[in-house]
């Protein structure tokens, strides 16, 4: 049990570094780097812990991405940068690379000629399953991270109106 927890926490560190790499690639301001590491790790850990509790990977990813979205909105208020600066690098480590890769392999096998009939349906089933998982995880990621931003955007617009009214 303790070992399991340690294993999951260790993965959190790697989630953080994966987020950090993309943050640097997207030229994020320096003051945001540390926060992105933390948000990326928190989102990834949420996903892993939920999966440990036998919750499906799509829902787990959605929860992780939503947490990233919510944390990004609050980080945006503190660090004075738009939320997407924090959220996009932080969710990228949760991208379903392994499923997409397996789907690719399957598609290549299916389009090849050297495949027998029995094998064909097995490969087709596996490829469809992997592809659909990849697609739904991707949708869960994007929707999960977008919703908190959209909800909070309404708030900031109100604040702008309020602010410009009070200035006049």
């Amino acid at each position: 049990m303790v070992l399991d927890i340690l294993m999951i926490l260790e993965k959190g560190i790697w989630f953080g570094f994966a987020a950090l790499g993309f943050a640097v690639l997207f030229n994020v301001p320096q003051r945001a780097l540390m926060i992105i590491w933390l948000i990326g790790a928190a989102g990834g850990l949420t996903k892993l812990i939920m999966m440990q509790c036998n919750i499906g990977i799509v829902i787990a990813t959605f929860a992780g991405a939503s947490l990233v979205g919510i944390l990004s909105v609050s980080a945006a208020h503190n660090k004075h940068a738009p939320p997407l600066v924090f959220s996009i690098p932080s969710v990228i480590p949760m991208i379903p690379g392994a499923f997409a890769y397996r789907m690719m392999l399957g598609l290549m096998k299916l389009s090849g000629t050297a495949i027998s009939n029995d094998n064909y349906y097995q490969t087709l089933a596996e490829t469809t399953s992997n592809g659909l998982k990849a697609l739904f995880i991707l949708l869960a990621l994007a929707v999960g991270v977008a919703i908190p931003m959209l909800i909070s955007r309404k708030e900031t617009i109100k604040k702008i109106r309020h602010k410009s009214d009070s200035l006049e």
Binding site: W14, L20, G21, F22, L25, A98
Partner: peptide, 18 residues
Amino acid sequence: LVILSLVALAGASFCRLF
């Protein structure tokens, strides 16, 4: 060099996660 190394580190992190 910083970009290259940190993105490469991100790649290695992906590998660890999978």
